[in-house]
Design a protein around this nucleic acid. Structure first.
Lengths: 128, 128
DNA sequence: TCTAAAATTAGGATTAATTCCTATTTTGTT
DNA sequence: AACAAAATAGGAATTAATCCTAATTTTAGA
């Protein structure tokens, strides 16, 4: 994130305006459509940079490509392992305590902002 | 899981005896080494079947291939997003309440047994 | 403003992990 | 034993993501 670039600016804006946890490909399509010539590799590279800089979140799941989420107030995700749809949910986790506990037990400095769980959503259960 | 097969039996045993969250490839190597001719696709297919039947867990993360874990008493995972190492940790989450809450807010029936968090481990932080 | 170094990009090739395909073999049932 | 259903082997194909290199853009400094 040393130098400004129009492409990165666009990518940030697209993620910020998306509330449906888009994939890298989704983002690529949208940025591309907005005129701005951009390459797939630029999208992937910048998403990585933005995750590293804690501007966006990356959600990896048991099914399908990774999803991205602009970092706002803390919230949690529930992902359907059949269709890949991502839902937000609220729950009062004691994030600070969890973080402290994980650090002391494993040495890992947690970067999640929120917790992700997986399961089967209603429509998939009724195999629609 | 309708019919018995020697290969599936072996795969279950390998996952059960592994306490280091092996990848599909790890499992394939071990089963193969144990004599038993087995193909990679058989390993992948059976791991899927075993996950569906809730005999094993699948851990997907931001980095590297999926990991598998034999389902025992409930516990949580902390994954390093740099090196991919998976650590266990204990934390008293109110799983029942979380499950109920997620179900009512999103319709998702959670299948996780335990919660997975991500971050950077000690050795990666000191970029060893 | 001009220039050089550093950062970033485009575009395509490559890789890694997983899924898919089909002929063959094994298993459970009568 | 015979038949149908389930599972396997082996390799091809697909998907998502990463990597590579030459060209372009940005920034900082003279």
């Amino acid at each position: 994130m040393k130098n400004y670039s129009r492409q990165r600016e666009e990518i940030i804006k697209v993620v910020k305006d998306s509330y449906n946890h888009p994939t890298a490909e989704d983002i690529y399509i949208i940025v591309k459509a907005k005129n701005s010539s951009v390459s797939r590799s630029t999208v992937y590279r910048n998403l990585g940079v933005l995750v590293d800089n804690k501007i966006i979140n990356k959600i990896s799941m048991q099914v399908g490509p990774d999803r991205y989420d602009y970092k706002r107030e803390i919230h949690n995700h529930a992902v359907c392992t059949k269709c890949g749809k991502v839902f937000d949910f609220e729950y009062h986790f004691n994030y600070d305590d969890i973080q402290k506990e994980v650090k002391s037990q494993t040495g890992i400095e947690i970067s999640n902002n929120g917790i992700a769980l997986e399961g089967i959503c209603d429509s998939c259960k009724n195999n629609i």
